[in-house]
Design a protein around this nucleic acid. Structure first.
Lengths: 194, 194
DNA sequence: GAAGCGTGTTAGTAAGCAGTAACATTATAG
DNA sequence: CTATAATGTTACTGCTTACTAACACGCTTC
């Protein structure tokens, strides 16, 4: 535990972020420890001294992710109960959240057959988010502010859209991740309005 | 060229499909030639005799895909110019098309840093499909049967949704790929109706 | 300045894997 | 039945890569 003052990242932190950067691009097997060391700015020996094995670095990455789950805290406080406003806010929040863990997402996709738990975990987080949106839509239906229908299917419509957009821009990096998000959400909001 | 009568697949065909099956799960590097041989029901030697190298199998797979592009033929003929009907038909057609090439899709995702061309090619096919939907929506707008707006953004809304659904079920295989497709498309169709 | 810690360097081992060579066996066609 | 094509078996080479051992260097701290 260092002082809270942000200093130069530690050796293990630099190795971890280098590993994540490389493996989210090429996958576990294609990345060599030598490449990790070079990316982190150390010698290969230091990597082995710090983590013991290549596998241990990956394990630590996943452990770190699982212990710092994407925060879903205070979205509910920000609801205005105006349909389009809220759906846009929820979508923007989703994109912020997943953008922060997109490298872990890519890794989980590429190594899904080796570490199915991680991939399922990430999927479950998305489902949780969909549940929140579904809860919201149920409330809106009760208030006569949203069209009647299965709220989970309605929420999933929005979330599959958001996921499709996220995945596209994550695997094919370009600018403008959120380009046209407002206009697209407006279409869905209109489809859900009364 | 054998007779047209469908016989037992040839050696090279069996090796190719075994390779695609394995590599779409684990990626190029994690699959050994020995595993390919076992999956195809041959000895390792036969694989090398047939293709010369591991890389050559992959090259052939991609070549086959590029020479048999997903057919987009006669969708336009099937349009009814009823918004929801057509958007559902287009979505179903999209899912049929991509389901047929989902293994190539998975491979292109996992090897995207090694073969960016394939990944971009697949993305371009999706964009072409979006263009078709956008053309359709433009026509519908002109006929006063769809709400005014940028038709490409409208089409992309539907297609990001479809892609999100496809990707979810492809990377996390379960039954019911098209479950709730109709209800979800109905939401989007409602958002696009006049 | 001595001790200890973090890091680098060099050399090496062991395992896995792509690919080759040579010969044996089985299946198929004429 | 025989010749040929397809496939199997075994043994091997060479390369890559995870990982270890041993020693050297420099920086901080007391």
């Amino acid at each position: 535990m260092k002082t809270k003052q942000e200093t130069r990242p530690s050796t293990s932190e630099r190795i971890l972020s280098a590993t994540l950067r490389l493996m989210s691009e090429k996958g576990y097997r294609s990345v060599t420890v030598k490449q990790i060391a070079a990316e982190a700015g150390f010698s290969e020996m230091t990597v082995f001294r710090t983590f013991g094995s290549k596998k241990a670095i990956l394990d630590r990455l996943i452990e770190n992710y699982l212990y710092n789950p994407p925060a879903e805290k205070t979205i509910r406080d920000r609801l205005t109960y105006d349909l389009e406003t809220d759906l846009l806010m929820l979508s923007e929040f989703y994109h912020e959240t997943v953008a922060a863990t997109e490298q872990i997402y890519l890794l989980s996709v590429m190594e899904r057959s080796v570490m199915p738990d991680l991939h399922v975990n990430i999927h479950n987080n998305a489902t949780k988010f969909t549940d929140i949106v579904a809860d919201y839509l149920r409330t809106m239906q009760e208030q006569g502010k949203a069209v009647k229908g299965d709220p989970f299917v309605q929420a999933a419509t929005l979330m599959y859209f958001n996921y499709g957009k996220f995945a596209t821009y994550t695997m094919l990096p370009r600018a403008d991740r959120l380009k046209n998000l407002q206009a697209a959400v407006a279409v869905i909001a209109r489809g859900l309005a009364v």
